[in-house]
C-alpha cells in the first residue's frame, strides 16, 4: 500500500468532520442511543461483534454470489440474442418490459413458495435485482455494434453470426456488459438485506440487522451493520473496477474520456 497523496488526504477532512459532528451531536445533543448511537459506540460494537460479523458477511456474500452468478449467466446469452437478432428483440422485449418494473422485493413470497426458506431463495431475489441492469446494458452493447466494424469483419473473412459475435460483437460489447454488471451488483447488494430479512436462514447481515438487533433495540449494532454493508459494497465495486474495468478496457480510454 502507498501513502495517500496530499489531495487524497484533503478529501479525508470533510469525512473526519462529519464523524466528529456525529459523535458530538449523538453524545451531547440527542443523548439517546436508541435514536442515534454514538460513533465510538458503533465502532466498539463492530469490535464486540467481530465473530458474528464474519459469519454474517460470509453468508451474505454467499447469497450475493448465488444471485450474481445466476443473473450474469442468464442475462448474457439473452442479451446476445436480443442485441444481435432483431426478431428476438421484438419478441422478447415486451415480456422484459412487463416484468422489469416489478420491484425485486415483491418476488419474496413467490421465492419462498417456490424455493423454500434457504440460501437459494435469497439468491433468487438478488438474481431478480441484478438481472435486468445486466441484460439491458449488455444487449445495448450488442445492438450498437457499428455497421462498419461488422462489414470490416466480413471483408476479412469473418462471416456468419457465430464468428461475428465472437470476434466483433462480444469484444465491442464487453464494456457495456461490465457497466451493466456493475450496476447489477449495486442493485443486487441492496436486495441482500431485504432478502435476508424474511428469515431465509439464521445468519447474514440483513438477517441479523433486522431480525435480531432491531428487535432487541440495539441501535449501535444496527448502525454498525449498516456501516459494514456500505463498506462491503464499496469494496466490491472497487475490486470490480480494479480487476475488470481498468485492466480490460484500456482501449476504451480514447472513447470515454
Amino acid at each position: 500500500m502507498r501513502l495517500p497523496t496530499k489531495e487524497e488526504g484533503l478529501s479525508l477532512v470533510p469525512l473526519i468532520i462529519v464523524l466528529l459532528l456525529w459523535e458530538i451531536i449523538a453524545g451531547y445533543v440527542i443523548r439517546d442511543p436508541l435514536i442515534v448511537p454514538r460513533f465510538s459506540a458503533v465502532i466498539f460494537s463492530i469490535y464486540t461483534l467481530r465473530e458474528l460479523l464474519i459469519i454474517d458477511i460470509l453468508t451474505s456474500l454467499l447469497h450475493f454470489g448465488i444471485g450474481m452468478t445466476l443473473a450474469f449467466s442468464a442475462a448474457l446469452p439473452l442479451a446476445i440474442a436480443m442485441g444481435w437478432f432483431r426478431n428476438v428483440f421484438r419478441a422478447v422485449d415486451p415480456i422484459i418490459e412487463i416484468i422489469r418494473p416489478i420491484p425485486p422485493l415483491a418476488w419474496i413470497p413467490l421465492a419462498i413458495v417456490w424455493i423454500g426458506l434457504n440460501h437459494y431463495a435469497a439468491g433468487f431475489i438478488i438474481f431478480i435485482g441484478a438481472f435486468f441492469p445486466i441484460l439491458i446494458d449488455s444487449y445495448t452493447g450488442f445492438r450498437d455494434v457499428p455497421k462498419v466494424l461488422v462489414e470490416t469483419g466480413n471483408v476479412l473473412g469473418c462471416i456468419g453470426n457465430i464468428k461475428l459475435i465472437r470476434y466483433v460483437a462480444l469484444p465491442y460489447a464487453l464494456p457495456s456488459i461490465a457497466t451493466g454488471t456493475r450496476v447489477g451488483m449495486g442493485v443486487g447488494w441492496m436486495c441482500v438485506v431485504a432478502a435476508e430479512m424474511f428469515g431465509v436462514g439464521n445468519s447474514g447481515l440483513g438477517y441479523r440487522l433486522f431480525q435480531k438487533f432491531y428487535f432487541l433495540h440495539q441501535m449501535d449494532y444496527v448502525v454498525a451493520y449498516m456501516l459494514i454493508l456500505g463498506l462491503l459494497a464499496l469494496c466490491l465495486d472497487r475490486l470490480f473496477r480494479h480487476f475488470v474495468e481498468d485492466k480490460l478496457f484500456r482501449w476504451k480510454k480514447g472513447i470515454v474520456k
Binding site: 462498419v148 466494424l149 462489414e151 470490416t152 471483408v155 473473412g157 465491442y172
Partner: peptide, 19 residues
C-alpha cells in the same frame, strides 16, 4: 458475397478499437 480475396479500406475509420 464478401470474401477475403477482395480487401476493402472504408471511407470512415474502421479499426477495431479494442485491438
Amino acid at each position: 458475397g464478401p470474401s477475403p480475396d477482395r480487401g476493402m479500406v472504408f471511407q470512415e475509420f474502421s479499426l477495431f478499437p479494442w485491438r
